[in-house]
Every structure is written in C-alpha cells, then in structure tokens.
Amino acid sequence: MATEILARRKMRISRSGLTGLVIVIFFFLLAVAVWAGWAGQNWSAADGERWASPGSTWWFGTNQLGQDIFERAVYSVRTAFEIGIVVSLLSTALGAALGAVAGWRSNTLADGTVLWLAGVLDSIPFYLFVAAVAFALQGLPWAMHVAMIATFWTATARLARAEVMKIKSREFVLSARAIGLPSWLILMRHVLPNTLHILLIQASISFVAAIKTEVILSFLGLGVQDGVSWGLMLAESTQEVLAGHFNNFLAASIMLFLLLLGFNLLSDALQDSFDPKQAAL
C-alpha cells in the first residue's frame, strides 16, 4: 500500500535526500549488526587503561573507566534506533487513531475529548512533563518511552484530524457510502489510507525527536537505565572534558549529529515530495 502511494506520487528524491537515505541506512545496518551480536558487544568491559588515546587497539580511545569508546558509541546506535522506532511507531499510531476518530466524528463528544486531551498535554512544558513521567515511573525501563509517546501523539493527531475532515467531504467517501459500506469501514479503508503520507512524515519527525529527547533525558539521568547511549556518554564526558579529554564527548556528539543530519535530510525530502505545490510543477 505504502509503495503504491509512493509510486503514485512519482517520488523524485533530491540529492540531499539521497545522502540522508545513505546515512540512515548506514546507521541502521550498524544497529542491525549490534542486534545480531556482530558489533558493539564489548561496550561495558573496563579492560583498558584510563583515557587511552585513539589508536589501533582503541579506535576512539577509552573513557574514564577504561572502557572502549568505539564499542560504546556503536552500541548506542542500537539504543537510538530502539527508542526511535518504538516511540515513532507507537506515537504515530496513537495519534493517527485518535485524530482519525476525532476528524471522522468532528464536533462530537469524542472529538472534543481528543482535542481537550491534546490541548492539556501540549500546554505542559515538554521537558517538564517528560521528566515528571520519567520520574514517576522511575525504575521502569520504559518510563522514558511512555513519556515521549504520551506527548508526541498530539501533533500527529491534530494533523490526522484535519486531513480526515478534508477527505471525508471528498466524493469518493460519499460514493463508498452509496455502495453501502458502513461508516467505520469507510474510515479504515478509504480515509486512513489517504492520510498515509502525513503519517509517514510524522513518523520520521518523531523518530528524530525521540532520539534527541533521549540524549537530553539520559544526560539529566532520567533516560536509559541499562545499556549505554550517546546521552549517557555525554553525561560521563562532562567530567572528562574538564580534565582535558575530549574523545568520549566527540565520539558521542559526532555520531548523534550524523544520524540526525541524515534523518533530517531524508524527512525534508519526503515532505517535499509529498507537497502538493511541488507535485503540481
């Protein structure tokens, strides 16, 4: 289905979009390698000397505890993808479901409830809310995910609601009714598939947002509980930087920067290719 929609839109991807795609695929393969156990497995062993310089044994050097920074940075790719995928899939699905119901039954109680809920969540300062949830659910490894999903869905819901309201006045929806399809089936079969391009873009945006938020939360000590992430590495590096050792800091921030750059390029290209004004050219 998604492929059909993409094909229909004659997706022409720009050069920068292609660069983004290559970067994202590279990181994704790295994450797969970690999942499969081919790379980054040695992230916790403290078997080197403290603050070793980069070289053939320690590619990126070692940290304060003598842990291999390269292994840690690579393992963090998996952490980033895990959080990005879980949060973007679930928050987009939740936003799509609530937004679609709100738009389909606009100006009813259901619609009002969804809008009210989104309004309340949006009015709480974001990091305060995430920190509060993460704090309240402390000890649970999923606290951070729950907090992000609970706030990220609102943007998708608003967009999905507006799009569904637009689509439901199109004639093919009336004609689906004239064929005798029940209301919920029309929503599932004819309305939601027509919002897929928006959902795709929203998923890519929340992926990036989730990774960024993870770094900040981990830095604050509210994020990743077990394992390692770029946010945790940056948190460790604060003391090291004061002592004049930048390897940990550089490794984590450059990797983070590259992945976010790749994703932003890709999601910009996606948005451009779905932009009706561009398509008309």
Partner: peptide
C-alpha cells in the same frame, strides 16, 4: 445501497478513491 439502488455522482474526478 449499491445492490438494489445505486448512484453515480456529478464529479468523476473525485468519486473514485485515489489509493
């Protein structure tokens, strides 16, 4: 609807689902 009685609409451009 669609079985015993059916309808064709004024605007053929939008009466079919694009996806």
């Amino acid at each position: 609807r669609g079985n015993e009685i059916s309808m064709i609409f004024q605007e053929p451009l939008t009466a079919l689902d694009p996806v």
